[in-house]
């Protein structure tokens, strides 16, 4: 499926997923700052950062898909010509 053909109704769900992943990443990173012990620091620097990067990647994907969809819709509109 190309990005532009992703159904628009999926966007809010993907953004919500991105927010949940982002919150999980924030929680792990804050835990390591508040209580810097080996487990916390390793979790923040591995899983925390993977989740954070994934959430940003999903957001970027949705924004690009939405922009492409809008552009495609505009291109498919019949041109209005003045007589």
């Amino acid at each position: 499926m190309s990005i532009a053909r992703l159904p628009a109704r999926a966007f809010p769900r993907l953004i919500a997923l991105s927010c949940v992943l982002g919150l999980a990443a924030i929680a792990l990173m804050v835990w390591s700052v508040a209580d810097p012990r080996p487990l916390q620091v390793i979790l923040a620097m591995s899983i925390g950062q993977v989740l954070g990067t994934l959430s940003l990647a999903i957001f970027a994907f949705v924004v690009i898909a939405d922009l492409r969809r809008t552009r495609l819709a505009l291109a498919q509109k019949p041109e209005v010509t003045s007589e």
Partner: peptide
């Protein structure tokens, strides 16, 4: 998903978490 909400989300999912990760990594 409007231009305004995109900018807010860019801060919430990009700019601010990157700031947190940078400060957190240095602290860690």
């Amino acid at each position: 998903l409007t231009a305004v909400s995109r900018v807010w989300l860019l801060f919430g999912l990009g700019v601010l978490p990157i700031g947190l990760a940078t400060a957190g990594n240095i602290q860690g």
